[in-house]
């Protein structure tokens, strides 16, 4: 575990905590894409199937359980919480996300480390995670105004990806025969999707103004 990987995991965790805090404190999920949250729940469940077969570390197991539980809790709140569900921007969150699931699974059938159930699902989860933010970005762009917590949520989620890239570069330079073709390629694609958002986030931060995305 290097410092970049730890920073990546912590910003990832922080992003999820920020989202839970926003929903809990404001009893509102306005500005949050339920489709993105459902995709993340699928991502974590299919990637962490190895919880039952491989033990890596207490840290690893703990984080996996936290990611699965928190993503399911967010989806549950947005679907079933009597107050929270009323603020869901249903009419703005119309991204056709089954397309993303299908395309990710098809790609996983073609490109994987090994042709086994667990490995194909692992690759599927990597590809799906790379594009899972799209419904959220589309929702933010449609709603125009972004509240602070939601903006910070997306910012930290993007920071997590950027730190993982630094982590792979570091590992490539320090570990013999280190390669992560599937995760690395997907990670670069995923991080690139945030570029536009980052640009406007930094402008609003610099001007000390509310984050607004152009229509």
């Amino acid at each position: 575990m290097n410092v970049f990987r730890l920073a990546g995991d912590m910003t990832h965790l922080l992003s999820i905590l920020l989202l839970l805090l926003k929903i809990y404190a404001t009893k509102s999920c306005s500005g949050v894409s339920r489709k993105t949250q459902e995709l993340y729940a699928i991502v974590f469940i299919f990637r962490y199937l190895d919880l039952f077969t491989d033990f890596i570390s207490v840290y690893n197991t703990f984080m996996k359980v936290v990611f699965i539980a928190s993503s399911l809790a967010i989806v549950w709140c947005m679907r079933f919480h009597p107050v929270v569900r009323r603020s869901y921007d249903r009419e703005l969150d119309t991204f056709r996300y089954f397309f993303l699931v299908g395309a990710s699974f098809a790609l996983a059938l073609i490109w994987h480390e090994k042709f086994s159930v667990q490995e194909v699902f692992w690759a599927f989860s990597i590809y799906l995670e790379a594009v899972a933010i799209l419904p959220q970005l589309v929702l933010l762009q449609r709603s125009g105004n972004v509240d602070n917590l939601t903006g910070q949520y997306v910012f930290f989620l993007g920071a997590y990806r950027a730190f993982y890239i630094l982590n792979w570069i570091y590992r490539y330079l320090t570990e013999p025969r280190f390669t992560r073709w599937i995760a690395g390629t997907s990670g670069v694609v995923q991080t690139a999707l945030y570029a536009d958002f980052f640009y406007y986030y930094f402008i609003s931060w610099k001007n000390n103004s509310k984050l607004k995305l152009p229509a």
């Binding site: 995991d9 990832h12 190895d50 491989d54 480390e113 090994k114 667990q118 490995e119 982590n167």
Partner: peptide
């Protein structure tokens, strides 16, 4: 196996 052991990241 080697392949699975590579998944040490989250």
């Amino acid at each position: 196996s080697d392949v699975v052991a590579e998944h040490d990241e989250l």
